[in-house]
Every structure is written in structure tokens, then in C-alpha cells.
Amino acid sequence: MSSTPTATPPTPTSPVTLAVGDEMPVSEFGPLTRSHIVRYAGASGDFNPIHHDEEFARSAGMPGVFGMGLLHGGLLGQRLAAWVGLAAIRAYRIRFTGQVWPGDVLCFSGTVTGVREQDGEQLADLALEVTRQTGDPAIRATAVAKVAQCA
């Protein structure tokens, strides 16, 4: 099977401690294959042919098929969950800034931009990014996570 899942650390079971400037462990995914794209199409229900049919993609003026934004958005979401804890995520918002192509190696990173208190909860604001091996950004994202109260 060409789309071998990669190990992700288990999602923390309680809010973690985060401070401004803390970074998500940097990770990579790839090279991206058509099998990854097709597998995500089946999982998500996104059967837009531009993502799996070369002929259709070329007729739409693209060089070929490309990954759906929610594929690398989802890959980033899993890393966010593995970092801050699935149950601690309050919001996750992604902005698509460029396409990803078969053969791409994607890099995932994130940083804490702020920590604040709201309604008795300690919340961290996060900035996240997916970049291609070329350095081009494919996603810029923000997230809000509940974090452990300061001692």
C-alpha cells in the first residue's frame, strides 16, 4: 500500500501548558501521491474530478490533479490535536494560499502567538502553516486551544 500511515503521537488527554513562542513539533508528510488523494476523497466524500482525473484537470487548465485543500488542512488538524489535545481545540481556521501537487513534501509548523484568559479558561492562540518543499505556503491557519492554568 503506497499510502502508509505515519505515526502521530497520541493526543494529550488533558490541557497542556503552553507559553508564547512555544512551537509545535515540525513534521513532514510526503511525497504526496495520487493514492493519498484518492484515499482522502473516499474518506471525505470530495469527488471533484479535478483531484483524481488527470484528463479533467488538464481540461480545466491545470497541469494535472492536485490535492484537495482539506487533505493538507486535515493533516495539519491531526498534528494540532496531537500537540494540544483533541478535546482542547476550541477553534481551527484555515486559509488556502496555494495548491499542493503529487510529489510534494509538505512541512507542518505552528507557534503560540498569545495566551489569554476568557470565561475562566486559559486559552492559547496559535498560528499554523503548511508549506511545500519549495517554501511556498499552502495553508495559513489559526487555532484556539484550552491550555493548563498557570500555577
Binding site: 497520541p10 488527554t13 488533558s14 484515499r39 482539506l70 486535515g74 488538524g77
Partner: peptide, 29 residues
């Protein structure tokens, strides 16, 4: 698994309960 995540919390109800969920939770997206 389509997102490369093998965390048992998404596949094993016991792992999910140990993590504090009432049943297997769903990924963020």
C-alpha cells in the same frame, strides 16, 4: 487513517475511554 493518523483514540473504544471520551471521538475536520 486517510490523514496518516494511527492514534488508537480514533479506532479503539477502550483507548478513547482511557483518554476521557465517552466513545471514539472524531478528528478535528
Amino acid at each position: 487513517r486517510s490523514l496518516g493518523d494511527l492514534d488508537e483514540v480514533y479506532t479503539d473504544v477502550e483507548a478513547a475511554r482511557a483518554a476521557g471520551f465517552t466513545d471514539i471521538p472524531v478528528p478535528p475536520t
